[in-house]
Nucleic acid binder design. Sequence first.
RNA 1: GCGCCCGUAGCUCAGCAGGAUAGAGCAACGGUUUCCUAAACCGUGUGCCAGGGGUUCGAGUCCCUUCGGGCGCACCA
Length: 559
Amino acid sequence: MDPIQKLRDGLNHLVAEALKKSREAEMLRFESVPEYVIEVPRDEGHGDFSTNAALLLARQARMAPRQIAEIIKTQMDFSLVPELTRVEIAGAGFINFFLDQSWLYKVPSLVLSMGERYGSSARQNKKVQVEFVSANPTGNLHMGNARGGAIGDSLANALAFAGYEVEREFYINDAGNQIEIFGQSLEARYLQLMGAKIDFPDEGYAGQDVVDTVKNIIREYKDTLLSMDSQARQAFVVDYALKEKLAYIKTTLANFGIYYDVWFSERTLHESGQIMQTIDELRQKGYIYEEEGALWFKSTLFGDEKDEVVVRANGLPTYFAADIAYHKNKFERGFDRVIDVWGADHHGHVSRMKGALQALGYDPDRLEILLMQLVRLYRGGIVVRMSKRTGTTVSLDELIEEVGKDAARFFFVMRSADSQMEFDLDLAKQKNQENPVYYVQYAHARIQSIFRQARAAGLDLKTPKEVDYTLLGPEELQILRKIADFPQEVAAAARTMAPQRIARYVLDLAGLFHSFYNHHRVLNENGALQDARLLLMETIRITISNGLKIIGVSAPDQM
RNA sequence: GCGCCCGUAGCUCAGCAGGAUAGAGCAACGGUUUCCUAAACCGUGUGCCAGGGGUUCGAGUCCCUUCGGGCGCACCA
């Protein structure tokens, strides 16, 4: 059993018991026990742990929070938590717990015994699906896809660490209107390159990558497509292009450290009839009406601004119709939670998607949509404009080429999804401590360097039981305190869908390490102190490595 | 016009489930250092948390409103 968790549970129990006794003795009056928390205060002077129970009771008990805290304190049974040395009432009515510092001595043994699993929580028996990137297979991956990839994958990692059973999914938009246009564009380019004088479709994909794909087709199939009828030719080129683009997407995302469990094809929803079945279901439930030859979903019933077309007058379902069927399909697969990571330009889609789920009888809160704002790239202090037309856009593969996978992922995850971010390409490439990725990775490499030295000197890492922890000073204990909090931090990142917290955490921990390193020696200290510090180093190393793993950044042994 | 997100130090951003004196990195300024386990270290913040109003014992955090920036409001996806 995790001794740190046991300690937290113990304090929780202690407070619960004290509340119960206070109520029974009629010292405090309240109906329901508030949802107080046992948390680590920001300021070390406020104890090892703290609770806001008294503050939350103020209203119900009709008493000043500090007075409530005093009463709770008198009813506490200290023997429930042997490490507890002192309880203080402070501030507006916080109850602060001071522990014997020996509780921190249990941290290294816990971290070493859990190893790569340190920071993870017990299984929750809940399935969650994270769908992210889902880029159109008609072009290159752009910065929006890159940010979505970094955030989605890290969130999935955090959820897995927090005890969820996680599935990653990529939705392939390989059907519908845009694929029609894609086919027309490819065909037009083919015919043009074969010498025909024909116009390029107005709404077509004018990018260079379409031309490149067509050149590949020509290299392989020469003029054999000329003899086909247009329909067959379009089907052929689309098929070829989708295969090529998907291979590109798969490879690029793999280079970005992202691997999916499921690649879900939109086309299968069309071909299996699931889309029309879903619309029928909605129709039977009274949420569909016909107007001007099209079928509309009454999304205004669910707070949307206007109703939405699901089947066009030409009989073809819209993207929205496919998306409803897709999300129905997701829930039929038994996920407790479904998370979509979308670009902010899709936010208008959120309320009607949830509305459609509600109409189908699903709890719309089981679908959580993480919206992320735009990314602006900077190079040399000026914005790198993104324009699909001119081809000056930086694609994900180019970004990885330029700054590397680790820097790219760290930078994207470092910022919270709901604010626009600036990506400084120059900073991401720097190999010094100003670069946050470098700073964290370097902490790991530095520790490994210490171990290389230690091994060269014939030193072995002692087991946690063999080490004298009383030799550790305040800085070392502060580091252990930080490390003890890692599982809570991972859980919070998963709960609030905020992987940037992990990036922040590893930066903080690396900072504590570097500062310690600059003031103290690990090797060449007297034997017992050296042993204790080596063990501390390994504890830090494992935690940084696990944190970096969640955000998809490597933990190098040397740099 | 309507809707969503954002507005925190000179810059880039944190701020965890309303809670304790609002933080970090960079830049700036001042000082120390050139030891080796790797390219130094220590210190210094004067912020109307965009403005205003409200809820609360308590608001950067919640509600209303004004201003500013971004995005969206197709029988596109």
